[in-house]
Design a protein around this nucleic acid. Sequence first.
DNA 1: ATATCATTGACCGAAAAAGTCAATAGGCGT
DNA 2: ACGCCTATTGACTTTTTCGGTCAATGATAT
Lengths: 222, 222
Amino acid sequence: MDEREHEHDEDFQKFQVLDEEKRERIINAAMKEFLSGYKKASTDNIVREAGISKGLLFHYFGTKERLHNFLTAYAIKTIQAEFLGLINVLQPDILDTIWQMSLLKRDVSRRYPDMFDFLTAAFVDAKTTGSVTENLAKMVHMRERILAEAYANADKSLFRDDIDSEMAINIINWAFEGFAQSKMHAVGSDNPGAAARENYDEFLEEFQKMLNMLRKCFYKKL
Amino acid sequence: MDEREHEHDEDFQKFQVLDEEKRERIINAAMKEFLSGYKKASTDNIVREAGISKGLLFHYFGTKERLHNFLTAYAIKTIQAEFLGLINVLQPDILDTIWQMSLLKRDVSRRYPDMFDFLTAAFVDAKTTGSVTENLAKMVHMRERILAEAYANADKSLFRDDIDSEMAINIINWAFEGFAQSKMHAVGSDNPGAAARENYDEFLEEFQKMLNMLRKCFYKKL
DNA sequence: ATATCATTGACCGAAAAAGTCAATAGGCGT
DNA sequence: ACGCCTATTGACTTTTTCGGTCAATGATAT
């Protein structure tokens, strides 16, 4: 397997040197296409969506498989750096933790709308094929560890005594996820910057309103 | 368009006459394959998953398009008859309504695991293509009407005065959806009937626990 | 002008696509 | 046992799409 000396740092230098806009356009087009699985993704669709020629895509990545490998590594690295790595698991108020996680996730999703779903699909693919990459497995493990840690460090005494704190946390997570999902389309439509910004502020405001409501309902009165 | 006299009741008689097990096996295999869109669905995958020969599928449905049309009509009819049509929108306690909806949805999903998602995909497909079928549009409209009606008839005075009832209802919906999603995999794995049944009971029990908790948190004390 | 490098899209052989059909299996009445 | 009829098969055809290539072109700096 490791017959080359640089077996794990394939550089993709030609691609990395592009300006940000084009690079992310290609990344997002590819991730979107890979959502339905490696096999069903078509490089023709990717280049059409990205607005580049087919030759160029293969000039950057060589093969479809290497493109997919790059995306997987890139997604893992990004989510690690801009999501998992920024979560403060030591906060005692887990509502704050979940709130923070939601904001971070939204920030990543604004730049890379399909990154989380892409990784999920990549993981399913890898499990089906039987070959789960080392990094992918580590990533999943890391994610679980963070959630477990956040939960372990949470001050459960903040919750009302007559409710199951674990279930409350689940509900909160689902509520945030559902909220983000439902607003994604409204915000995600391609409108000029001003309207998008306005939508985003509205989004945050309503989001916070929900947070306060959950706090009011699930936490002890102080 | 209506050059034939039976333009809308294509019969698919050869298929309808099959025994239930085989019929539903084919329907479910096809719906599953169509989840990633009409174009990307492969009839070869469908027949492999369904365990029938290719010739037979085309013997039943003629073309891929007619198969898809059949599935769409079938899904609409089924969801109409076994989900939307059975919801009692007059219940004043909307938690009861949501609970009932969840049970109905689960019952349908047990027989046709991908039916709801298939319809969603079919709708997205139709919007992309530009041709949203009359029935499909009606279906969506019906769904919205039912939800609106249930909400309109809900007795908001059951909710605590200091919370936004509309947001509370959203949270409840998202929580139920998230719960169903998270448990789906556990239940959905292909294990013998006994274990599946056991899982299902467990599912219902935990479900009800969550319902009670939400009632306790969002409703007035009596 | 020339050298250099990014970029294109027509093109390739191979694979997969939808759909067909002669051949067979499997029951059923006689 | 026999023929009869329908259900079912899967190899096959034709067309499209696939991943991948490459000679040609555009752009830029010297």
